[in-house]
Design a protein around this nucleic acid. Structure first.
Length: 1053
RNA sequence: GGGCGCGUAGCUCAGUGGGAGAGCACCUCGUUGACAUCGAGGGGGUCGCUGGUUCAAUCCCAGCCGCGCCCA
């Protein structure tokens, strides 16, 4: 519906309803005011855009019209453009990272769709194994139920129920953001189709030995009681301790222990009956299989091959273990001797494998000391026989043995640590040092820290000797979801031979088939893939894709896509399925093709795979990008059977941080929910949000205070457009985004600016002219803005083609402001002039120019632009309107451009003087150009109306002589004289001119120095030399003009 | 320890081998018929430091200082 007020040029109503308010206008009593125009039920545009009301309405409209469907708005035979969404966790809710990620995808998708590409943005969610199981378990707990109250099937049914009810949250939030995904194609990694893809890939890889099962040391999460992959472990430096214990030599043997300094001088010589071992994990001593020293370490050479005693456990059953050599121990670290606990440490595991040292598992799935198996005495005896070399052993036998002494069985691992330390210390087998009072760096006495360290009694009596305990930071592994300390555990797990799969994935990026942007991330990608470890894909969870492997009674494995096939493989045996499920990322790795229907050969797959670009954060390059590359290249083949990449480009964007640069986190209380910026939230709501559900509830008051101080009024409803524009404008390559609420506000205001430009067009009855040809414009101002628009369009497309999102945003932002500041003002005289061809052309140009802004802004700010398009009677939907293809070369009129640039510079010069001289804004003054060239005179003649209006001149003329008492400034080709004798202060004016001259002289000095340098003239490119010459001439000319003005001032006295 | 990145205006950040930019903040003026969610004008930076390459370096190279991230 067109709402053009063609009969009421300049009509302005203060009442939003569109009815005029009364017979007298209170606002403009003295003027001719159209508020007194006849009452008419019309609907002018609202004064501002109400995002909260309009955005959901507009989105619903697009959706109902099928605007997002794959292929919508595609030109016949168009190229395809496809993106698969990084599937958010089904449990997720939208955070800033999603907002950024999806805004960028939407910008690209909308842009291509408008350009007529056959476009698919494939949406969906990820089943997120641990996260989802966690959410549902918590919900059941709230209902007083436990997971173990359910059968596996029933529990999974509970999760599906939850998914149906609550799983769509994040997708609805993406809609609120404006994401133009093809929702009809929504997929979920646990869908039947995607599950079939998982089974098929597993079976194929199994059959190629790319997947295998084995007992390996893996990262074990004692909270979730499952293995996790290396990537799901976060190593965090924590304050820790290193204890030093004596492992007595067997049978009271002794040796000469000698320490030397670098020059070989003996610094210590004593007879020892023990070997000193340093450890950060005393509880694992129970599982030691050996003590290792470096083969070159002379200190221990005398005792290599001998046995020593683990100084813990019942005395009568102390285990003896061999002292071996291995390259792993660092002689300069600690005592240089390392205990080897193959089942609980990754380094020890390697040593144990090399040395065929038994690896004794000490803990159960919850991280407590084992309580199963035979009594300690029996187990210890067997272990001793192994250590003595009297007994053969194998992996499984050793794994079954429980070497935890009876008194420690069932203890939590940290409790066990304290007990072990206390027991050893009590027995006098801790290494002791004098209890020195050590001066610290500031020279103040400070005793060795003894707080809460197991093994050191908090005794006031200050004993002479205390146990040697180093307090120092140690790296500890934590589960990225559970936040508990990860335990290396020796378990049977499924692995993917990632090394083999990585080679084609490396090659595809190296040879440019897939391009990573910004390029620096390629290094990260290569480094990880080149050193990739086997990928542990099995999880001891219930929610996920169950491993498609069945076992018969003899543990023979049959891998097949379903049970019938497995049974057939086994020759008809009765089989049991492997209970493990797969790492969620296993199914995510298939996402680019599984969502398109693979393993079926669907038309979508043929059309949209490989996808055009993947937009993702750097934090999942390893988790996801690299694995999709591996899976794609392994399973997808083009018509010639050549492995096919999943995407041509990978654009890696930054992390969104808070305004101060801190990572947004619940516990810090600095999280900003994108939806709160879109729809607004008051301070109470924000505080409530940030302080509920904290891990540390005691932080709530602090967080509340911080929040109120920072955002005393909460957030206004800035709308999705403003947030999107902000994120786009800040998405510069290679740097994190510090999100500023002020900046969002600024871009909301930018939307209002655009809105008002459209209102201006409406008030002036500027209607779209279907026959308007921008190349045929006749008026200088029109030709000029058309050329400027074309320039902007080219710069925009160039930037977006290169994923330079921030450049795109600033290009269109600057253009809109330029249009409003200058063209809109310039158009006014033409619009209020006589009816005629010029006026008609200008009206059409105004609409055209604003429409071009709407088009170019639409990918970033889809809502307000669509609303403006439709409110002003645009045809169809803006999101399916064709993208412009004109170029600056097509539409530029060089003369018009030069003339308008000159006009602008003159207006700016006059305004500047007026402001500096404090000429009242309302006062009209005269202007006279002197020393003018013909071009300047003609330009003034042609543009005097505009210049007079915008510079508030009563007269604009050319003349031969400057009037006395003029203030002077310069433009290209003329001296500008403003006769302001009554306001002029000779001293002030002289100061102003002197300052300006100073700047010019500095510039002239630099330029002439350069131009008199023969080397510069000889070596610099000709165009650069020419440019410098022109600049020098211009500066010189301006200097002359100002100099003359100074002369005249001095003549005045 | 290895790798990557960053240091430009008070703040947040663009940018370029040849005239230092934007937004916000700040100061002055202003209800001019689109817009006070606004307009006009203005101040403010030895482009981290030191060397090198070059006719020319904020930009390229090396070293140093400071900060961040990833990996061990």
């Amino acid at each position: 519906m067109a709402r053009i007020l063609s009969e009421f040029d300049g009509l302005r109503l203060h009442d939003k309803s569109g009815f005029h308010i009364g017979p007298k206008c209170s606002k403009h009593p003295a003027k001719r005011c159209l508020h007194t125009a006849p009452v008419r039920p019309i609907m002018p545009m609202e004064k501002t855009f109400d995002a909260r009301e309009a955005e959901p309405r507009i989105y619903a409209d697009w959706e109902s019209k099928g605007c997002f469907k794959a292929g919508a708005n595609a030109k016949p035979g168009a190229e395809t453009f496809s993106i698969v969404i990084p599937p958010p966790n089904v449990t997720g809710s939208l955070h800033m990272g999603h907002a950024l990620n999806n805004t960028l995808q939407d910008v690209l998708t909308r842009w291509h769709r408008m350009r007529g590409f056959d476009t698919l943005w494939q949406p969906g969610t990820d089943h997120a194994g641990i996260a989802t199981q966690m959410v549902v378990e918590r919900k059941l707990n709230d209902e007083g139920k436990k997971r173990t109250d359910f059968s596996r099937e029933d529990f999974i049914a509970e999760i599906w129920k939850w998914k149906e009810e609550s799983g769509g949250t994040i997708l609805n939030q993406l809609k609120r953001l404006g994401a133009s995904c093809d929702w009809e194609r929504e997929r979920f990694t646990m869908d039947e189709g995607l599950s079939a893809a998982v089974r098929k890939t597993f079976v194929e890889m199994y059959n190629k030995d790319l997947i295998y099962k084995g007992k390996r040391l893996v990262n074990w999460d004692p909270h979730f009681e499952t293995a996790i992959s290396d990537l799901e472990v976060e190593n965090i430096e924590m304050p820790g301790h290193m204890w030093h214990f004596k492992y007595p030599l067997a049978d009271g043997a002794t040796y000469e222990y000698v320490e030397k300094d670098e020059d070989g001088n003996v610094t210590l010589r004593e007879t020892r009956d023990y070997i000193s071992i340093a450890t950060t994990r005393p509880e694992t001593m129970l599982g030691d299989g050996a003590v290792a020293v470096h083969p070159d370490d002379e200190r221990y050479a005398p005792i290599v091959g001998k046995l020593c005693e683990i100084p813990v456990g019942p005395k009568e059953h102390r285990r003896l273990i061999p002292i071996i050599t291995d390259e792993y121990p660092d002689p300069d670290f600690g005592s240089g001797a390392v205990k080897i606990t193959g089942a609980h440490d990754f380094n020890d595991y390697q040593v144990a494998k090399r040395g065929n040292i038994p690896m004794y598992s000490l803990m159960d799935t919850k991280g407590a000391m084992r309580a199963d198996g035979k009594p300690y005495a029996e187990e210890a005896a067997i272990a001793q026989a192994i250590a003595n070399g009297e007994r053969e052993f194998d992996e499984n036998m050793v794994a079954a043995m429980n070497l935890v002494p009876d008194e420690y069985r069932g203890l939590d691992r940290f409790e066990a640590r304290a007990r072990v330390v206390a027991d050893i210390t009590a027995e006098g087998l801790a290494v002791m040092v004098p209890n020195l009072v050590i001066p610290d760096a500031e020279g103040e006495p400070e005793s060795q820290e003894t707080d809460e360290i197991p093994g050191q009694a908090g005794d006031d009596s200050a004993p002479a000797m205390i146990p040697l305990i180093d307090s120092k930071p140690i790296m500890q592994p934590f589960g990225d979801r559970s936040k508990v300390v990860i335990e290396p555990m020796l378990t049977d797990q499924w692995f993917v031979d990632a090394h083999t799969l990585a080679q084609p994935a490396i090659e595809a990026v190296r040879n440019g088939d897939t391009k990573i942007v910004p390029k620096q991330w390629e290094n990260t990608y290569f480094r990880w893939l080149e050193d990739i470890q086997p990928w542990c894909i099995s999880r001891q969870l219930w929610w996920g894709h169950q491993v498609p492997v069945w076992y018969d009674e003899d543990e023979n494995a049959y891998c097949a896509e379903n049970e019938e096939a497995a049974v057939a493989l086994s020759g008809g045996k009765s089989l049991t399925r492997d209970p493990d499920v797969l790492d969620t990322w296993f199914s995510s790795a298939l996402w680019p093709f599984s969502t398109m229907g693979w393993p079926e050969e669907t038309p979508e797959l043929a059309k949209y795979y490989p996808t055009s670009v993947l937009i993702t954060g750097f934090d999942i390059i390893f988790f996801w990008v690299a694995r999709m590359m591996m899976a794609g290249l392994e399973f997808m083949k083009d018509d010639n059977g050549k492995p096919e990449i999943p995407f041509h480009d990978v654009y890696v964007h930054a992390l969104v941080r808070d305004e101060k640069g801190a990572k947004m986190s619940k516990s810090v209380g600095n999280v900003i929910d994108p939806l709160d910026l879109i729809d607004g939230i008051d301070a109470d709501g924000l505080v409530k949000k940030r302080t509920t559900g904290l891990n540390r509830p005691e932080d709530a008051p602090k967080i509340a205070k911080q929040t109120r101080a920072e955002y005393p009024d909460g957030f206004e409803a800035f709308g999705a457009d403003a947030l999107r524009f902000t994120l786009t404008s800040m998405a510069a390559m290679g740097r994190d985004i510090k999100l500023s609420v002020e900046r969002i506000k600024g871009y909301r205001n930018f939307g209002t600016k655009l809105w008002n430009a459209a209102r201006f067009a409406e008030f002036n009855a500027c209607e779209r002219d279907p026959d308007f040809d921008p190349a045929a414009a006749t008026q200088t101002v029109n030709k000029w803005i058309i050329g400027e628009t074309a320039k902007t369009r080219e710069a925009y497309d160039e930037a977006l083609s290169n994923y330079r999102f921030n450049d795109v945003a600033s290009t269109i932002y600057a253009h809109v402001y330029f249009l409003c500041d200058w063209y809109v003002e310039f158009s006014k005289p033409l619009l209020s002039g006589e009816d005629g061809a010029e006026k008609a052309e200008t009206k059409a140009t105004v609409v055209w120019a604003i429409d071009q802004c709407l088009l170019m802004l639409h990918p970033i700010m889809p809502f307000i632009t669509e609303e403006l398009w439709q409110v002003t009677g645009g045809k169809g939907v803006l999101m399916h309107t064709d993208w412009p293809t004109y170029t600056h070369a097509d539409l530029c009129d060089a003369e018009a451009e030069a003339e308008m640039r000159w006009t602008i510079s003159l207006i700016e010069a006059i305004r500047s003087v007026r402001a500096e001289m404090n000429v009242p804004a309302g006062a009209k003054i005269e202007m006279l150009l002197t020393d003018f060239d013909m071009e300047a005179a003609q330009r003034l003649l042609r543009q005097s109306a505009l210049i007079s209006k915008m510079a508030r001149l009563s007269e604009a003329a050319v003349g031969n002589e400057a009037p006395a008492g003029s203030i002077v400034t310069a433009v290209e080709g003329a001296t500008v004289n403003l006769p302001l004798a009554d306001v002029i202060d000779v001293t002030v004016e002289k100061t102003r001119l002197t300052k300006a001259l100073g700047k010019l002289e500095k510039e002239i000095g630099g330029l002439s120095g350069k131009l008199s340098n023969e080397k510069f003239l000889a070596k610099a490119p000709a165009d650069v030399v020419e440019e410098q010459k022109e600049r020098l001439a211009a500066a010189q000319a301006e200097k002359d003009k100002l100099q003359a003005a100074v002369g005249r001032l001095e003549a005045m006295g």
